[in-house]
């Protein structure tokens, strides 16, 4: 209901904040909804509101090259051995699947933040393990596990059954199994 209100009411004078929309629906539905909403808001005739749109669907970063006025940002992350350090800094450009790509450029984070970030990271990792055990509970904010599911759903959706040979189908299955590893 909240997103529908935003779409109905927002004008170019509005500031719209969208935080993980599509959450709570099945992952692939979520991506489609998020995509459509982003397109709608970016359309200056329909809405054109200034918008901050946080998402896990990194597919949405493709919009930057498709629609004028869209810019990609990401929150910088630094990989350190097995740990990931959150730098809390917003930078230009989207993330792809690996978090560490932009991170090397960044430096100078206070120790306190690093320590705290490690603590938070540990909690996060614990959460992911829990969720792996409890596979039914996939709703809620997307973590790494759900993210894989999203990709798999995406792969399946791209398949055109009318054109699919049995060999292709096997190949798709292999790809999916690959992703689950």
């Amino acid at each position: 209901m909240e997103v529908s209100t935003i779409l109905k009411e927002a004008t170019s004078n509005s500031l719209v904040i969208l935080d993980e929309i599509g959450r709570g629906t099945s992952t692939y539905d979520g991506l489609s909804i998020a995509w459509a909403v982003a397109e709608y808001i970016a359309d200056r005739e329909k809405c054109g509101a200034k918008t901050l749109f946080a998402t896990h669907y990194h597919e949405l970063t493709e919009l930057e090259s498709k629609i004028e006025g869209v810019k990609n940002y990401s929150i910088a992350v630094k990989e350190k051995g097995e740990d990931i350090i959150f730098l809390r800094k917003i930078i230009r450009g989207g993330t792809d699947e690996s978090y560490g790509i932009h991170v090397a450029k960044l430096a100078g984070v206070p120790n306190k933040v690093v320590t705290r970030a490690n603590e938070i990271l540990k909690t996060l990792e614990r959460k992911i393990t829990v969720k792996k055990e409890d596979k039914k509970n996939v709703a809620g904010q997307l973590d790494m596990y759900n993210y894989k599911l999203a990709e798999i759903a995406h792969t399946i959706d791209k398949v055109d059954i009318n054109e699919l040979t049995p060999i292709d189908a096997l190949n798709v299955l292999v790809k999916i199994k690959e992703k689950l590893k």
Partner: peptide, 12 residues
Amino acid sequence: RLSIITGPNMAG
């Protein structure tokens, strides 16, 4: 007009 912000959970 539209900033798409990506990044892992808890990143801020």
